[in-house]
């Protein structure tokens, strides 16, 4: 499933894009937002693989930084409110593009996202390192403690945690603990 975030102030354009994306028949989850203040929340809650963003939003302070920070791997496609020359970069759209241009650009982008995404995420299995991190988190250890025990940086622990959450669909520590017990990564006795 490709998760797409559409960040576009105009309701009409937003709906138009969603309609075209739905026509592509790739299984996608589309989330729409209309302003820069909603972006951080959307990035962390749906963790999009692809972001289609109007330049009036991406040019707001902090927005690009947030995207880089929360979803560094997402493909970012810009929408311009002005006409753009033909044959430009596939990662730019204009509200004046006609249907065939839009469909082509979007399809090839979604396809390429899907390929990388399938390769990386079909291995829903946790890596060895992620299992180790999960085990320690489930035992109630803080990011810092985990970092010390595994001789890695806190930053690395956080990025492992993000991947664990994305792969398992579990966000909270208590949820991860339940998962760890169900899968015998830790035992019930360990926590009591």
């Amino acid at each position: 499933m490709v998760r797409i975030l559409v960040a576009e102030p105009s309701y009409l354009v937003r709906k138009g894009l969603s309609t075209i994306l739905n026509e592509l028949k790739t299984v996608t989850q589309i989330e729409e937002i209309s302003s820069a203040d909603e972006i951080r929340e959307a990035l962390t809650s749906i963790i999009p693989n692809m972001i289609i963003i109007n330049t009036t939003i991406s040019s707001m302070p902090q927005v690009e930084e947030d995207i880089r920070k929360h979803t560094p791997d997402a493909a970012v496609i810009s929408i311009f409110n002005t006409p753009i020359p033909k044959n430009t970069n596939e990662k730019t759209l204009s509200v004046f593009d006609d249907k065939s241009v839009l469909i082509n650009k979007l399809r090839s982008q979604v396809k390429s996202v899907q390929q990388t995404y399938i390769q990386q995420e079909n291995s829903e299995e946790l890596s060895e390192r992620e299992r180790e991190v999960l085990q320690k988190i489930a035992l109630g250890k803080t990011n810092k403690e985990v970092a010390n025990e595994l001789f890695i940086s806190t930053h690395t622990v956080i990025s492992h945690r993000k991947n664990i959450t994305r792969k398992l669909g579990i966000k909270t520590v208590s949820g991860l603990t339940v998962y760890a017990i169900l899968n015998q990564i830790i035992s019930m006795e360990d926590i009591s």
């Binding site: 579990i170 966000k171 949820g175 339940v178």
Partner: peptide, 9 residues
């Protein structure tokens, strides 16, 4: 968040 987790579990 926890309701989300419960659902997935």
């Amino acid at each position: 968040e926890k309701v989300f987790d419960l659902k997935n579990i």
